[in-house]
Design a protein around this nucleic acid. Structure first.
Lengths: 344, 344
DNA sequence: CCTGCCGATGACAACGTTGTCCAGGCTCTA
DNA sequence: TAGAGCCTGGACAACGTTGTCATCGGCAGG
């Protein structure tokens, strides 16, 4: 496990300190501190002299020292899976918005869906003494966080629950959403429906598959196991899986895509075919309205906002048992999900 | 200007320190430090005892104190305009990737295109003593950064140059890209081409407009000022501007969209019309291939990577004059830009 | 057996800030 | 006019870590 090591070759280019400012202004150290922090008890004249010295020296308070002294860093950590995934943009932005409202900075990093990297990142953030953590977990065992949580690091999991510890979680209703989406396809006459999802160890992928099975069972439809494919969301894999379901003796007439990456690949694939295949995807996609893609939309901004608000509530000292919140999803019918099966 | 204030109500839940570990292991403070940092000169037996104490207490080194002592924070700041804009996802991810390779963490925030907020954020990051800064500037006067840069905070601007100071910048060739895109439309027979862009005070917007004018001039075509509209990228404004250009006595037969947000709105608008209008947009968009949108693509990941690499080169002590790098763009012809004018 | 050396270990100061507490000078009142 | 009380300003310790330097014990060589 690589280390986030500090280098010790160089030091700051000798930044001025409060001591320097004090010397220049001809006042005591603590007086400078008072001025910098807007504390009362400084004559206007003294304050002016100090301000001038600050200006002249280009002094900027060293928050590292401040943090060391005060114990709080006014920063929170956000660990997500991939900054470049459009799903996380609004989420991350919502978190930042809330953090800003609470005067906190955001430190973030991506786990790239690798549990080791997630742990490495989280612990690096804890070493920085972030006040709180928002984590989209990649791993399934978060017991390594126990000492941190006990020590007071507020922690909220988003999009997927924590593994083997009891912690706050803010999720989308993957099960319900998938169930609704598949039921939608069934309602339009489909009886053989394929499901292509992410790796089964990912909680949302498993939940969505569960929703698929539930919808099929609700309708009394059997599920041929060749219709179900979980695995990486690599386009080649998804494409191969879809092609297999669409060919053979008993091809599916509709596809349910387990997340946005799968949906994109499916759309590309289906665009190249002559017979129309129905498609419903989990997650909304930009321009999906123009392409007429029916999706189960989750509100990723609300996910982030809810998680961040919960985090700050905890930081404000609210003590309650960890809770799990599930935000509901919305079916957006745009055409691709309303295609009837051939011959219907 | 709001302050990123530390709260002082509570302290950490009393985390164990090296002193505690030392006491428990029955060794000196410095020995613990040595073990934690993997320094040589510790007997295997002593090391084991210390490790056990660390484990038992759940000790985690306090990097704030470490930073205070060592002078380097091993973190860099990234200030961008909007985390939710898909253009910045890959950029931000690329920066993170490079930072990670150098063992640094990323602290980031959005300016929301507001110069005051940009300054506030940048200075908050400087107070945290980030080692370096990557900034997508919203403002046009960055003299406030001079003391910081002088004090050794490496700074690289991305996407837009710095204002009123001499600093590194990594840009896309907005001028050349727009010129190529407009020339492409001209080559397909268009003579009246509309340009809809972002606010003129934004450098890239101005450069792209300059490219537009250059291409028109190259072809000896006059520019009717009603064909040019700069302003907010709010969909309503863009829509209104486009509709005005497309109606009236002398409607344009093609549109050049100044950035991804404008392109999206334009695509929506044009999708609702019966007569085809040619469109070229600056910035690529996901699924643009399926929609057949011709774009001038910039490599936002390369932008971020290049900037971050430059930053770390400076942090590694390389001293050279600030430079400006311009990355070239690529025209991706997908259909919408190859539509001929009506009657051609 | 003594000297010198080396490797392991710990004592101590310093990093830059803030909280506590005290000193000195002022005003106000009895 | 003296004492009480207030306001301003500064000295000092502490936060948790790391760099410097001294110490201690053992071991090899004389």
């Amino acid at each position: 496990m690589a280390e986030f090591a500090l280098r010790n070759e160089t030091r700051y280019g000798n930044r001025p300190t409060m001591k320097d400012v004090a010397a220049r202004a001809g006042v005591g150290l603590k007086t400078v501190s008072r001025v910098v922090n807007g504390e009362p008890g400084v004559t206007p004249d003294t304050e002016r002299r100090v301000q001038e010295a600050i200006e002249a020296l280009g002094f900027r308070r060293n928050d590292s020292a401040r943090v060391l002294r005060k114990g709080r860093t006014a920063s929170i950590g956000l660990v997500l899976e991939d900054l470049a995934d459009p799903f996380y943009g609004p989420l991350s932005r919502a978190v930042e918005e809330v953090a800003r409202a609470h005067g906190a900075l955001l430190i973030n990093g991506s786990s790239a869906e690798d549990p080791d990297r997630e742990q490495e990142l989280v612990l690096a953030l804890c070493a920085r003494r972030v006040d709180g953590l928002i984590v989209i977990p990649a791993g399934h065992d978060h017991r390594y966080l126990e000492p941190e949580i006990k020590a007071g690091v507020a922690t909220v999991f988003v999009d997927r629950p924590a593994g083997r510890i009891d912690a706050d979680a803010v999720l989308s209703d993957s099960y319900g959403g998938a169930r609704e989406g598949v039921a939608h396809l069934i309602a339009h006459g489909h009886r053989s429906i394929g499901f292509i999802g992410d790796q089964p160890r990912i909680h949302t992928a498993a939940e969505r598959l569960r929703g698929y099975r539930a919808a099929m069972a609700d309708a009394g439809l059997p599920v041929d196991e060749r219709w179900v494919s979980l695995g990486s969301t690599d386009p080649a894999r998804v494409r191969a899986a879809a092609e297999e379901m669409l060919s053979g003796p008993e091809p599916v007439t509709a596809l349910f895509a387990g997340n946005n990456r799968v949906t994109v690949t499916a759309v590309r694939l289906l665009a190249g075919r002559d017979t129309p295949i129905a498609l419903v995807g989990f997650d909304d996609i930009e321009l999906a309205d123009l392409l007429g893609i029916t999706v189960i939309a989750q509100d990723s901004a609300a996910l982030g906002r809810t998680a961040a608000e919960r985090l700050f509530r905890r930081l404000d000292g609210v003590h309650e048992a960890p809770t799990r919140v599930e935000l509901s999803t919305r079916l957006l019918a745009r055409g691709s999900g309303e295609v009837p099966p051939p011959g219907a």
